[in-house]
């Protein structure tokens, strides 16, 4: 039985949540993440194998898809970021490896990212952070974008009002600070 305590990217034992005027920013640490990249020449097989495990079609460029306990966001050409709740799928990347063995490359990414979910008035925050028009993203889309000098992954659940922002974990405090100050200024 594992007897080490894990911490969130913001160094907490529990996730951080901040309430602003009409916006909440919540740290979401409990996500298993893995990158899935199709092997050259095996793209179709790899895709099928992955989809068989996930239970839905891998999303097109710039899209996000979710069903059951898995979600997938387009990440790069022939590459996706797959996610699931850690509590149920801590070993997701291992299961993926088995599911797509030899057809796709799987790399565990769970601890490579910090994730903040924004709910509420997001437009003003994004206007202050990114040159990409994130507030205009369609629901169900996902993109990689630069936010205040940081390479992030942004998933839109509802236009202008519900997003996940994933940034490099080692930068978690900088990213959080950027979101927080932008929110304070905008709202």
């Amino acid at each position: 039985m594992l007897d080490l305590q894990s911490i969130t990217p913001l160094w907490g034992e529990t996730p951080r949540a901040d309430q602003f005027n009409r916006l909440t920013i919540t740290e979401v640490p409990n996500q298993a993440l893995a990158s899935l990249a199709l092997r050259k020449g095996r793209e179709d097989e790899g895709r099928k194998a992955a989809e068989a495990m996930l239970g839905f079609a891998l999303p097109e460029v710039g899209r996000h898809a979710a069903a059951g306990s898995y979600a997938a966001s387009w990440f790069a050409q022939d590459q996706w970021l797959i996610s699931a709740e850690t509590s149920e799928h801590e070993l997701m990347s291992y299961q993926l490896v088995d599911a797509v063995a030899g057809l796709a490359s799987v790399t565990e990414q769970t601890d490579g990212w910090c994730r903040f979910d924004l709910e509420g008035m997001c437009r003003g925050v994004f206007e202050r952070l990114s040159g990409v028009n994130l507030a205009a993203m369609e629901a169900g889309s996902a993109t990689r974008a630069l936010l205040e000098h940081l390479s992030c992954m942004v998933i839109c659940f509802e236009t202008a009002s519900h997003y996940s922002v994933l940034g490099p974990r080692s930068y978690a405090r900088s990213l959080h600070h950027a979101l927080e100050t932008a929110a304070r200024s905008a709202l």
Binding site: V61, G62, G131, V132, L146
Partner: peptide, 10 residues
């Protein structure tokens, strides 16, 4: 070609 118009800073 895949992601659409992006600022040079990226």
């Amino acid at each position: 070609p895949l992601m659409g118009p992006r600022d040079r800073q990226e």
